[in-house]
């Protein structure tokens, strides 16, 4: 992967950029704009992060702003809490989804609760970046989809981009937020490309607003992060079956954009929720329940879920059998009781 991004003085031509580059640019610009922003984590300094998201930042901003920490996730997040208590805005990197678990106690018992505990006196503006999800051929502990653990914890925002532009905009918005944000980066989209200019990044979207990525009238596919491209591909393929599928990219699981989701489902009358994490007790269960509660009289069929199986994440040579793909999505669409009407 390329480690070079356009320097600030470069011309503002829109050219292909990867999600990784956009994320790096967001960190760069946040560090440049606000001296309170600090980046810390394992290997984020000299190496530039194992995914190179922090490439060159310690050189430009110094090791006090972009800091290689000891290898201890609870310590990283715990010290970030103290830094935020002193008025800084730490951005911490958890190297991989499954390596973030040692920090769960700090996250659940302190990060998520400090504002509430102190009656608003001590908010914690911390961004926790977590590379997540599979599809990269990772060995055990490198491919978990951990969003359900986070979204069940009141006090946290849970955000995940699916496009290059959103990677920049949502990360900037997360760092600017006065609340803690778990920022889930879909690893397999790190190298996805789009025309995007580092010098004229789009306006930062507010957290908590979904985006309709594809308009359609037959049914709504509701998804996020790494499954957004899968759903867009499924929607294209679905045209041959005569389905005109709408695709909603949630962008933010917390806060949840009921408005956009319900408006779409009320229009199409059918909904499939798609994510690669296990289905049982997952985000899709919550989303399906919310749609059923709010849109019941508009529904032509039960809300279906397409998800990874309820198994520990498989070894890399078997992961393609686990991850929802176009066929599994279209099979679900086919089960939306079309024959009744």
């Amino acid at each position: 992967m390329s480690t070079a991004t356009a320097p600030a003085a470069a011309p503002a031509a829109r050219k292909p950029a990867t999600m990784a580059q956009a994320l790096r640019q967001a960190l760069h610009d946040a560090l440049a704009d606000d001296p309170r922003v600090h980046v810390l984590g394992e290997d984020v300094g000299t190496l530039g992060g194992v995914f190179r998201i922090t490439d060159g930042l310690t050189k430009e901003f110094g090791p006090d702003r972009v800091t290689d920490t000891p290898l201890a996730e609870a310590g990283i997040l715990g010290t970030a809490v103290g830094m935020a208590m002193y008025g800084l805005r730490p951005v911490v990197e958890m190297q991989f989804d499954a390596f973030a678990y040692p920090a769960l106690e700090q996250l659940i018992s302190h990060v998520a609760r400090m504002r509430n505990r102190t009656r608003g006196a001590m908010p914690l503006p911390i961004t926790i970046r977590v590379p997540y999800g599979g599809g990269i051929g990772g060995v055990e502990h490198h491919s978990d989809s951990s969003e359900a653990y986070y979204l069940h914890t009141p006090g946290l925002h849970v955000v995940t981009p699916a496009t290059v532009a959103d990677a920049y905009g949502l990360l900037r918005a997360s760092i600017a937020s006065d609340d803690p944000v778990v920022f889930l980066e879909p690893k397999r989209l790190y190298w996805s490309k789009a025309d995007w200019s580092a010098d004229a990044p789009q306006s930062v979207p507010p957290l908590g607003r979904a985006a309709v990525r594809r308009d359609g009238r037959s049914a709504t596919l509701i998804t996020y992060g790494p499954s957004v491209p899968v759903c867009l591909e499924a929607a294209e393929a679905g045209r041959q079956e005569g389905w005109d599928l709408e695709v909603v990219d949630l962008r933010s699981l917390v806060p949840f954009d009921d408005e956009t989701v319900c408006a779409s489902v009320r229009r199409t009358g059918r909904a499939v929720v798609v994510h690669e994490s296990s289905g049982f007790g997952g985000a899709g269960a919550e989303i399906a329940a919310r749609i059923t509660e709010r849109c019941f009289h508009h529904l032509e069929a039960p809300v279906l879920r397409v998800a990874g199986f309820d198994i520990p994440y498989p070894p890399p040579m078997l992961e393609r059998y686990h991850l929802p793909g176009v066929d599994r999505v279209l099979d679900a669409v086919a089960r939306l009781q079309w024959e009744v009407n």
Binding site: G78, G82, G87, Q106
Partner: peptide, 25 residues
């Protein structure tokens, strides 16, 4: 004065982070 902390020892990294931030400042 940080809040009285119930989960054992979890306030210690907070103290370190705050002291670190103060030193940087």
């Amino acid at each position: 004065v940080a809040p009285l902390c119930t989960p054992l020892a979890t306030q210690l990294p907070h103290a370190v982070g705050l002291a670190h931030a103060a030193r940087l400042a």
